[in-house]
Design a protein around this nucleic acid. Structure first.
Length: 215
DNA sequence: ATTATTTGACCTCT
DNA sequence: AGAGGTCAAATAAT
């Protein structure tokens, strides 16, 4: 449905959904056909305050139970994540067709429900501790769903064997970066696989020169 | 008392 | 008619 509304979508696969720098409020849950797990619907907590239209959907992967597929819709007008970073990112996105953010994984919280933004523990958490710069502005005017970013994060260190494709949409191969000591520099092969077999479905939006730069 | 979550109902689209 | 997305009353948590 959103595909026809011309909205942008940012798809993220995480092993931990807790922190993305924004405050989300759950507003719905739905069983999805052919999916074992329900899809959870969140909207920005500032929706009513300042009309922030950002929403996200979270769904546990059927194939890799530790993987959560998070899809972001809309832009954070509240920019709660981190004002400075978000503004900076906004300019970048305006200049480029897409942005892949390799921001540091938040492996800070070690317990609690993955659906919650606040961490528990000693309660010294701050909302905006680890912004992921996902406050992306609206992109172009292309019709249909624009999948702007596909990011795979490994924020736990449980050395999971990489599962099969996480979800039908992603056709994500074995791109798990969940090795205990993942070294970006030594994982070129994985990235090559990632590029070859996973980005084909979004290749229309990707400038591979830019991608090489990020790589 | 206030705020957040749950969950069935309702709406829109295919 | 069925599926997916959102609303809102009831409920739970703080």
């Amino acid at each position: 449905m959103r595909a026809n509304s011309g909205s942008t979508a940012t798809r993220v696969e995480k092993r931990w959904t807790a922190e993305d720098g924004f405050i989300w409020r759950k507003y719905g849950q739905k069983e999805i056909t052919h999916s074992k797990h329900p899809r959870l619907y969140f909207r920005c907590s500032y929706k009513h305050d300042i009309g922030c239209p950002a929403t996200r959907q979270v769904q546990q992967s059927d194939d890799d139970l530790s993987l959560y597929v998070i899809t972001y819709f809309g832009d954070h007008t509240c920019c709660q994540g981190d004002g400075a970073v978000a503004a900076e990112e906004e300019e970048d996105v305006k200049m480029q067709p897409f942005v892949i953010n390799f921001g540091s994984a938040t492996a800070s919280s070690t317990s609690g429900s993955p659906w919650q933004n606040s961490d528990d523990g000693d309660g010294r958490s701050e909302i905006s501790r680890s912004p992921q710069a996902l406050c992306l502005p609206e992109g172009g005017e292309a019709d249909g769903l624009r999948l702007k970013v596909t990011k795979v994060e490994a924020t736990s260190f449980d050395s999971q064997p990489a599962g099969p494709a996480a979800a039908e949409l992603s056709s994500s191969p074995d791109v798990s970066c969940a090795s205990p000591a993942w070294d970006p520099l030594s994982s070129c092969l994985e990235w090559d696989q990632f590029v070859e077999s996973s980005f084909d479905f979004v290749s229309g939006f990707i400038d591979f020169d830019d991608f090489d730069l990020y790589q």
